[in-house]
Amino acid sequence: MATEYVKLVDVTKCDGCRACMVACKNWNDLPAEPQDFLGTMQSHANVSADTWNVLTFVEHENSKGGLDYLFRHSSCYHCVDAACEKVCPESAISYTDFGSVVIDHDKCVGCGYCEQNCPFDVISLKEYKDKNGKEYRKANKCTMCTDRLEEGLQPACVTTCHPGAMQFGEKEEMLQKAEKRVSEIKERYPNATIYNPAGVGGTHTIYVLAEKPSVYGMPENPKVPTSAVLWKDYAQPIGKAMVGGVTMALVGAFVANKFFDKKGKEHEEDGGDRHE
């Protein structure tokens, strides 16, 4: 079993250079997606099937009335309890030993259930065309560079981050670093906090934030949707049991009928209710 790793993003050290976005595109061979100017310094509205990480940018009025420019490297959180994995009907999404959440394109049928259930809105379908021109879709998102992890290398975005806003290492070590960092910056940023939401069992991309999560446009209490839990942990297994149960009951009825039919032949005269 490999070690469980965490990518620690310290947004307070990010200078917004977007080298991580470039590194991600390069390593993962993703096409550039030209975007209209969004009216802010942010290049893309959100991550997409071809842009697995986006540097988000918000202007925030701090408690002293000044403006803070907040950058954040945003991509898949690699939830410990991932909604996308839960709802995938084809078991195409799975956890690796490293803790990353990955999509198997051979199994993906493009249903989009993951896209609708991810509490962070960071997984999406991409349209492809096969050689006959037939269109099909597959889900895409950040893989935490699992192909690099397998070779003992850190994710591409982490190795390229010059101000050291990203670190990659064993989970416990990263959590300790996050805690230490938050206590260091508490004075400067009283709202500083670690983002490792419990509603999804914790994540493998963990943030040190200077402000409340909502300031960065992150959900305050993300969780695996209740509907997904009811669906996958209750409705589906009960449904399967019920289908099996009804089938068994009818097979039973069929056999019983045949059985009594033979025994009942003698009574046929008074069994005037048989109409065939």
Partner: peptide
Amino acid sequence: QWSYFLHNVGFGLGFAVVLGHIYLSVIHKH
């Protein structure tokens, strides 16, 4: 998200009901 759940419930329930319906009409002799 709730639709996925309800569709799934409908699937299981519908299957059981229809199985019974078909059995009684096609297989059950009376």
